[in-house]
Amino acid sequence: MVFAPILSNEEYVFVYNKNMSQEFINIIDNIIIEIKRNGTLDSFYEDENN
């Protein structure tokens, strides 16, 4: 199998019911910000590559 060049760049998000409280959404957003900053998210990708 072969690849063609990249077609588009998109971003992935977590999705909630429309009625999910902003408090809960903010908690998850803060965790995402933290794991992006401290390298934890990168380590998850590295774990998958190994």
Binding site: V13, F14, N17, N19, I25, D29, I32, K36
Partner: peptide, 14 residues
């Protein structure tokens, strides 16, 4: 729906 901030960037390929 409600959603989080983006957590990953993706690209689509053929």
């Amino acid at each position: 729906f409600a959603h989080s901030i983006p957590y990953a960037e993706s690209s689509q390929r053929i």
